[in-house]
Every structure is written in structure tokens, then in C-alpha cells.
Amino acid sequence: MKITLNNRMEVLENTYQMTVQQLIEKKNFTFKFLVTKINGKLVKRDERDSAIVRDGDDVAIIHLISGG
């Protein structure tokens, strides 16, 4: 499937859908604290195992960095 991930086109071979958590693991996003959205809608951290990313979706995975 083809999705937009953080404003970039991303082609994921041999899959037509996956959970947000699977996408995070596939992309090796190792940050402990993230904010995830599908098509502009927040996916809370405890919903990542159930929220499904499908072909054509616009996914944002924001990395939260300490400091301030």
C-alpha cells in the first residue's frame, strides 16, 4: 500500500493494511514518546494497536523530544 507518512510518500510492500503500532515498528521509530495521527485525527497511545492504517492514508508520527 501507498501512504503519506510525515508528509512523504511511503510505499509498504506486500501489505494492504497495518496497525499504527506495526507501522512504528516497521519504520524503526524507537522514540519512547510519540504523537500519532491518521488523516488528521489523533490516535492516542493506547489506541495504536487497534487503529488501522490503510492505503492512501495520511499518517503523522511526531517525535517528542525532551528539552525546554
Binding site: 519512547k32 514518546f33 504523537v35 489523533l42 523530544i65 525532551s66 528539552g67 525546554g68
Partner: peptide, 30 residues
Amino acid sequence: FDLAEMKQMIIETVLSELPGKPLVTGLGMA
């Protein structure tokens, strides 16, 4: 905030509980 954990908490809270409210975050300045 300084801690990533707290940044996550406020972003998720504002986006889900105060929809439409603009939230300006600071990420990465070390």
C-alpha cells in the same frame, strides 16, 4: 514542558479534549 512524556500528555489532551484549540509546541532545541 521539558520532558517528552509531559509534551505527549498535553498534546494528546488538547487534541482530543479541546478540539480546534491551537497548541504551540517546542520540540528540539538542545
